[in-house]
Nucleic acid binder design. Structure first.
Length: 311
DNA sequence: ATGGACCCTTGAT
DNA sequence: ATCAAGGGTCCA
């Protein structure tokens, strides 16, 4: 394959910049599964139909795209919320009265929710159940490699629902989807002949959107919340995964609560930016730095009676 | 509403 | 070689 021809590095005009660690958390913290760190410490990724490189330079972000793609910068500005809409949402979070949230937010300043394409978020999170981030990244990379349209430089976009619906079962099997292959195929068959599904669903209120998403095969409450948050920009959606269960149990005294109740707690306690708060808590607990969880075992059998820390 | 199976991979014994 | 667990969902 031909070597990629990259445009020169340029500074991306962000309302709020990002440290190197925060940029890494945004790109590789479980929101998107399409970015990889290069040997030079830069990031190369595919989002929508664009390929880009990103790097952090003294708390600002520099970008470079495939030469010939004039739309990269504008798409990046949207993707990374350059206008800073999320700053206002973050300001409205209850960090003044919630020391746990305050500490988590201090850990990755500038952390934000990526504004991904709905189909991209849906496909990736259909693959996410019972998988680690690195495994999800490997699965969707395989899907792009096997079925996705080429974008130049050896990169490929994710396949559309049509390609996925028509895909041979052996191909999906080769992508190591396991039982998730049926989720992907089932959802692809429902959406393949509805090219405007995302535009239509964008007009729904969040509860209705979650209901529509949840009716797709392979989409339960957690995946629906992730797609609403990362794909439809619903910052109030509050995905509850195993990490958030740990975090809310240990730091908010919610031991024994069901995920559904935890989700309700999150939406009520954190409000319109619940999903953004969730991402901060997720990052903090994964880093092992959430207050009240210092005693967490490195590799951890679920700690059952190690006291009841309460923030 | 709660419990178990589910495909497959990885990392720890 | 075996075991446990992984940003869950589905069905009983």
């Amino acid at each position: 394959m031909a070597a990629a021809a990259w445009t020169p590095w340029r500074r991306l005009r962000l309302h709020r910049g990002l440290s190197e660690a925060s940029l890494a958390e945004v790109l590789d913290g479980g929101q998107s599964f399409r970015w990889a760190r290069t040997a030079e410490g830069e990031w190369t990724g595919v989002f929508g139909r664009h390929v880009a490189r990103l790097r952090s330079v003294s708390d600002s972000v520099e970008w470079s795209g495939l030469s010939g793609d004039a739309g990269v910068e504008g798409s990046l500005l949207f993707y990374l919320d350059a206008a800073g809409e999320q700053d206002r949402v973050a300001e409205a979070l209850p960090w003044r009265s919630d020391a746990v949230l305050r500490a988590a937010m201090a850990l990755y300043p500038g952390l934000r929710i990526l504004r991904q394409d709905p189909a991209e978020a849906l496909l990736c999170f259909l693959c996410s159940s019972n998988k680690r981030i690195i495994q999800i990244r490997s699965m969707v990379a395989a899907l792009a490699r096997e079925l996705g349209p080429p974008l130049g430089g050896g990169h490929r976009a994710l396949p559309g629902w049509g390609e996925l619906a028509a895909a041979d079962d052996r191909v999906l099997r080769a992508c190591a989807l396991g039982y998730r292959a049926n989720y992907v195929r089932g959802t692809a068959r429902l959406l393949a002949d509805r090219p405007d599904w995302d535009a239509e669903w964008s007009r729904l209120e969040t509860p209705a959107l979650l209901e529509r998403l949840g009716a797709l095969p392979g989409v339960g409450p957690k995946v629906a919340a992730c797609v609403a948050l990362f794909g439809f920009g619903r910052l109030g959606a509050f995905p509850v995964d195993t990490w958030i269960v740990q975090a809310l149990a240990a730091a908010y005294g919610l031991r024994g609560w069901s995920p559904a109740r935890m989700a309700e707690f999150g939406r009520i306690h954190f409000g319109e930016g619940a999903g953004l708060a969730q991402q901060h808590l997720f990052a903090a607990v994964r880093a092992g730095k959430l207050p009240g969880m210092e005693l967490r075992r490195p590799k951890a059998a679920p700690p059952r009676s190690c006291g009841r820390p309460r923030a």
